[in-house]
């Protein structure tokens, strides 16, 4: 049983996905979607669910996370729906509701720990190539790392993915 939540469409709009309402369900998006070739994900259906305010259906669904943000759909959409922005809005709402996969949590934790999405596993190769062991980013400057982390704190990221 699906339960529409009318306020959900407002929430999507607030998160940058208002153009979902323009969709007239032609299916051009699904036809070009590479993910749709490999898994059951149908981007057209996700747009419809967003229009109808089917909150639980969208934010709890694994489908929401099958988009690679390749923009093929958005490029071809005859209604100019900013489809990737709608997906991003839905994902932000899902995460705010505590739906974060383990693999994604790890990337988020890396960002907090290193200021990068991955650790430095190539320091030896860097030195061999004549590069400094650590790149001259936040990794090489603890004051800059603290500054970066302050942003993660102010914007609530640490709490969100903790």
């Amino acid at each position: 049983m699906v339960t529409p939540v009318p306020a959900f469409t407002d929430e999507i709009a607030k998160n940058g996905g208002s153009s979902a309402m323009l969709c007239f369900q032609c299916g051009t998006c699904t036809a070009g979607c590479p993910s749709g070739r490999f898994v059951a994900y149908r981007i057209r259906k996700l747009m419809r669910a967003a229009q109808l305010g089917l909150k639980d259906d969208t934010i709890n669904s694994e489908d929401l996370w099958q988009c690679t943000t390749c923009y093929t759909c958005a490029e071809r959409c005859p209604r100019d729906v900013q489809i990737v922005d709608v997906v991003t809005a839905l994902r932000n709402i899902a995460v705010a509701n505590g739906k974060l996969y383990e693999g994604h949590k790890k990337v988020a934790q890396n960002l907090i720990k290193y200021g990068h999405t991955v650790d430095n596993s190539k320091s030896a190769q860097r030195v061999e190539l004549g590069l400094p062991e650590n790149p001259p980013t936040v990794l090489a400057n603890s004051a800059a790392m603290a500054q970066f982390n302050k942003i993660l704190e102010i914007t609530g990221f640490k709490k969100l993915v903790g």
Partner: peptide, 25 residues
Amino acid sequence: ELKDASCCPAPGVIKSFSKATWLAA
């Protein structure tokens, strides 16, 4: 060198988790 830069942050992952964090970083 753009000293002290961080992750961009990544458009598919970090932006999907929090657009506010993504934009500020």
